[in-house]
């Protein structure tokens, strides 16, 4: 469907999920699906106290919008939003929020998962984990590429 309301943002500040969800809702909507990703305490057995998120300003926004447009061309969406944070994010902080709004839940579920899967393989963000043992760049996972390829 053309004309879906698509919004992408990259920001250091926290986001307010309730406000993002409220802004996503359309009168024709029967379903809103949202996803929030958080900084977790451990990665591959190593303790994590914070993440440092780097991105490629200019390309990041374009990449996120392109992913939303692909989702919108595959499912009849009314609206979709992605917000990704950058900078220093302590344990437990939200990193990313994706919301999709459609007439029916199947389309909203699928689009939300598609956006997250493509974000993880295409959007130029990089995570560096900080913990008691120092800092290390997160390696990309083959399972992420597999998840994106199944669409």
């Amino acid at each position: 469907m053309t004309g879906a309301r698509l919004q992408a943002a990259v920001q250091a500040e926290p986001f307010v999920a309730e406000a993002l969800q409220a802004a996503l809702l359309e009168p024709a909507a029967g379903a809103v699906v949202t996803f929030t990703g958080y900084v977790r305490a451990a990665s591959d057995g190593a303790a994590v106290t914070a993440l440092e998120l780097e991105h490629y300003p200019g390309m990041t926004e374009r990449s996120l919008l392109s992913i939303l447009q692909q989702a919108s061309s595959r499912w009849p969406l009314l609206a979709a939003t992605v917000v990704h944070r950058v900078g220093w994010l302590p344990l437990g902080e939200p990193i990313v929020w994706v919301g999709s709004c459609a007439s029916h839940r199947g389309d909203a579920f699928a689009a939300c998962e598609f956006v997250m899967d493509y974000l993880k393989t295409d959007a130029p963000f990089w995570k560096k984990e900080h913990g008691p043992d120092g800092a290390r760049w997160v390696e990309s996972r083959a399972t992420d590429a597999q998840r994106a390829r199944r669409w």
């Binding site: 990193i95 974000l119 963000f125 990309s140």
Partner: peptide, 26 residues
């Protein structure tokens, strides 16, 4: 210019070219 490219891509004056490792956001 903000689009992933392969090695044959022709470069023009003013182009912005980036090199980076596999992405790990989300």
């Amino acid at each position: 210019n903000h689009t992933v490219a392969d090695g044959d891509t022709a470069l023009q004056p003013g182009d912005e070219i980036a090199f980076y490792p596999p992405v790990t956001g989300g």
